[in-house]
Amino acid sequence: MDNTLSGVAMGAALTTAGVYSPDIILSQFKFSDFTMLQTFLTAAAGSTLVVTLSQALGLTQLPPRSATSLGLLPTRYDGNLIGGALLGAGMAISGACPGTALAQLGVGVRSGRWAFGGAVLAGIVWAGIQRRQRQAAAAEKTKKQAAATDKDTTEPSLTTTTTTTKPCPSGPSLDTFLGTSKPAAATVLESTLLLALFALSRLTPATAALARGVPPYLGGLAIAAAQAISLVLRKTPIGASSAFEELGWYFYPGAARKYTHLLFSAGLVGGAWLAAQAFPTLRPVVEVAVSPVRSVVGGFLIVFGARIAGGCTSGHGISGLSLMSVSSFVTVAATFVAGGLVGLVLN
């Protein structure tokens, strides 16, 4: 129930903010309207305050998001760079991200249904890749154990070793990068986000969301409030792309199946539907035309890229930045740069 309620809050927040709408997302990457970025900056600033307070009070003990590496580039963040770039490209193509695709499904956006289909397909493919990697790792482990057993039967054991499971290391955070305390780093981050928001609002005032009567800063605060609800109820921050991977495992017989993120996503769809029913003016007056092929391709890229990077625009962009994760800064930068470049090419 906690996961579902948290999802309802997030779905309602995305719908209230208007950033679920394909025209808002596509306009951002065409640089014709900055509603999405203004909302994002407000949400990130508000979420940073919420997460920092939660950590300071001991309500949560959340580590920074770890870096993801593919071993393709000479950096530990190549997975974040490549995954973030694919995520941004998919957003510029489809007008959706993993979270907003779910909200579009709830509101009834036609292109969102196709984007959701592409996202589900990406989840299935990603789960299949993970399945093969785990099978290969298990086979390698069995091979090594068999070799060790054969050695033990021919040579006497001189020592006894104990194997302990090490926790997955978290990635570096902004405070370690700057060499300051966490409160000081949080203050720097908050100040930077708010300064960028102020400059952006002065240079390029939003138009689309205001036409629906929802200023970007209110929409951003609604998303930050959804973050607070998630931390209180689930003790974990918001994120959407994991649900597609979780769903993907259901297509493989014998695979371990979970539903925590699926419950959150179901709530997100329901929250978007409720908000749209309660406030019809939140729905797009005219839907931007995004072809089914473009929506499916973009939907696939947003989830596949997000899983490579270890998070999406909510997992890295809102939650990851709030945790001051260096990997999230890298992912978000790659997302917006790649999305902007693809948007310029397409438009």
Rank of each mutant, 00 (worst) to 15 (best):
D23G: 14
I24Q: 08
I25V: 15
I25Q: 09
I25M: 11
L26D: 05
Q28L: 15
F29D: 00
F29T: 00
K30V: 09
D33C: 11
F34V: 05
T35L: 14
L37E: 08
T39N: 09
T39I: 03
F40W: 12
L41S: 02
T42F: 12
A43Y: 03
A43L: 04
A43T: 06
A43N: 07
A44R: 05
A44H: 06
A45E: 01
T48M: 09
L49F: 10
L49V: 14
V51G: 05
L53R: 11
Q55C: 07
A56N: 07
A56I: 05
G58C: 09
Q61K: 14
P63A: 14
P63R: 13
P64I: 00
R65S: 13
S66R: 15
A67Q: 01
T68G: 04
S69I: 11
S69G: 12
L70D: 06
L70Q: 05
L70Y: 05
L70H: 06
G71T: 05
L72F: 11
L72T: 04
L72C: 07
L73E: 13
Y77I: 00
Y77C: 02
Y77T: 01
G79Q: 04
I82P: 01
I82M: 01
G84D: 08
L86H: 04
G88P: 10
G88I: 03
A89K: 01
A89G: 08
A89H: 02
A92T: 02
I93Q: 07
I93H: 04
S94W: 01
G95W: 03
G99W: 06
T100M: 06
A101H: 06
A101V: 12
A101C: 10
